[in-house]
Measured scan of single mutants.
Amino acid sequence: MATGGRRGAAAAPLLVAVAALLLGAAGHLYPGEVCPGMDIRNNLTRLHELENCSVIEGHLQILLMFKTRPEDFRDLSFPKLIMITDYLLLFRVYGLESLKDLFPNLTVIRGSRLFFNYALVIFEMVHLKELGLYNLMNITRGSVRIEKNNELCYLATIDWSRILDSVEDNYIVLNKDDNEECGDICPGTAKGKTNCPATVINGQFVERCWTHSHCQKVCPTICKSHGCTAEGLCCHSECLGNCSQPDDPTKCVACRNFYLDGRCVETCPPPYYHFQDWRCVNFSFCQDLHHKCKNSRRQGCHQYVIHNNKCIPECPSGYTMNSSNLLCTPCLGPCPKVCHLLEGEKTIDSVTSAQELRGCTVINGSLIINIRGGNNLAAELEANLGLIEEISGYLKIRRSYALVSLSFFRKLRLIRGETLEIGNYSFYALDNQNLRQLWDWSKHNLTITQGKLFFHYNPKLCLSEIHKMEEVSGTKGRQERNDIALKTNGDQASCENELLKFSYIRTSFDKI
Rank of each mutant, 00 (worst) to 15 (best):
L76Q: 04
T107F: 04
V34W: 15
N202H: 03
S112Y: 12
N322L: 12
R298H: 08
C286Y: 03
H302A: 13
G333K: 05
E33N: 12
I185V: 10
N52S: 14
Y118L: 02
N295F: 12
N325C: 13
N117M: 05
P334T: 14
H236G: 10
K224T: 11
E49T: 10
Q245I: 15
K80F: 04
E33P: 12
P70R: 13
L152Q: 03
R208P: 02
I312L: 08
R46Y: 06
R162W: 11
C219K: 01
R46C: 10
T68L: 11
S213R: 14
H307K: 08
C286W: 00
V200T: 04
R297K: 11
Y304S: 03
E57F: 04
E147G: 03
C264A: 00
C280S: 00
Q204D: 15
C209R: 01
Y30K: 00
C215Q: 00
T45C: 15
E49H: 05
K251I: 10
C252M: 04
V218I: 13
K67M: 06
I185M: 06
W160K: 02
N309G: 11
V108D: 00
N42M: 05
H226T: 10
C293K: 04
E314M: 07
D248T: 03
E130A: 14
C255Y: 01
F115G: 00
I201E: 02
N175I: 06
Y118F: 11
P197I: 15
N150D: 08
Y118N: 05
E168V: 05
D169A: 12
E57D: 04
C215H: 01
I163V: 06
V218R: 08
A119Q: 00
N179V: 13
H59P: 07
N175A: 04
T229M: 14
E33R: 11
Q299G: 14
N325V: 07
L102C: 02
P31M: 11
L326T: 12
L233K: 11
V34Q: 03
Y171F: 05
F78Q: 03
F123P: 01
Y273K: 13
L164D: 15
T329E: 01
L240K: 04
C286Q: 00
I146S: 02
D277L: 12
L289M: 05
H212Y: 14
L76V: 15
P270R: 09
R46P: 10
